[in-house]
């Protein structure tokens, strides 16, 4: 059960729907318009797998993140030796991507998952970029324009934002913005029985960073980390 993928896919699909200017059920769910619990609405709630999410996977074409890549033989060796004695035994092949590692982790544990979407970027009809930063989905969001250096300029929330019900605000706001061009999120998985955990980061729905914390032989905490941030390809490290 690829819960994380379902969630990411729902997010990506929603972005696509915003792009098309449609207001579907998925969009409503994603931005918390209706009463269904969602991760954006409440990041601490357990991810639930929905049929809408599964269907959406087929429809969504994900944009590969910059610098993303595949595992090479040395990465697979690092993963194998790092996980000696650990519960986690992923089956990976040359050329697999970080998503495969995540899939395997997801299959082998009983996770409680938390997905937090952190940033959404939009472009309006005139090509002007707007950024929506979510600090606390219930309490605090920030809005930014972008300057000539590509750096954020804080802007006021849309008029009436503070007075509206947060759920309505978010939905109305997002629909006003225009085409979605970027999203990033943080995904945490915790197995409450073993206390093993995973922290992953995504860009445009694709995993760019994966770090698992676990105990193998002995009491020491170990970590397997794989990612492509700031690198030209995926790199793995055993810590």
């Amino acid at each position: 059960m690829k819960k994380w993928l379902v969630l990411l896919t729902v997010a990506a699909l929603t972005l696509a729907l915003v792009l098309l200017g449609r207001q579907s059920d998925e969009e409503k769910v994603f931005f918390g318009v209706n009463d269904k619990a969602t991760e954006l609405e409440s990041p601490s709630k357990k991810i639930s797998q929905t049929s809408a999410g599964l269907e959406s996977k087929k429809q969504t074409e994900q944009v590969p993140a910059e610098n993303s890549g595949t595992f090479r033989s040395e990465d697979l060796q690092i993963i194998e030796s790092c996980l000696k004695g650990a519960q986690f035994r992923p089956k990976l092949n040359l050329g697999d991507r970080l998503e495969h590692l995540m899939d395997q982790a997801e299959k082998q544990f009983h996770w409680i998952s938390h997905l937090e979407i952190e940033n959404l970027h939009f472009k309006d009809a005139l090509g002007k970029e707007l950024r929506f930063q979510i600090l606390d989905i219930e309490k605090e969001s920030r809005f930014f324009d972008v300057d000539l250096e590509g750096l954020p300029i804080r802007r006021d929330p849309p008029e009436g934002y503070a007075q509206l019900n947060p759920k309505q605000q978010r939905a109305a706001l997002i629909r006003q913005f225009g085409s979605a061009i970027y999203s990033d999120s943080r995904l945490r998985l915790v197995d409450e029985r073993t206390q093993e955990s995973v922290l992953a980061r995504t860009r445009n729905g694709e995993i760019v960073e994966f770090q698992m914390f676990f105990k193998s032989e002995g009491p020491d905490l170990k970590s397997l980390a794989c990612g492509s941030l700031g690198l030209k390809r995926v790199q793995c490290k055993c810590l």
Binding site: E118, L151, P152
Partner: peptide, 13 residues
């Protein structure tokens, strides 16, 4: 840049 812009915010701005 915590807004996801991918650049650094620095004293060079």
């Amino acid at each position: 840049d915590p807004t996801g812009g991918g650049r650094l915010i620095s004293n060079s701005m």
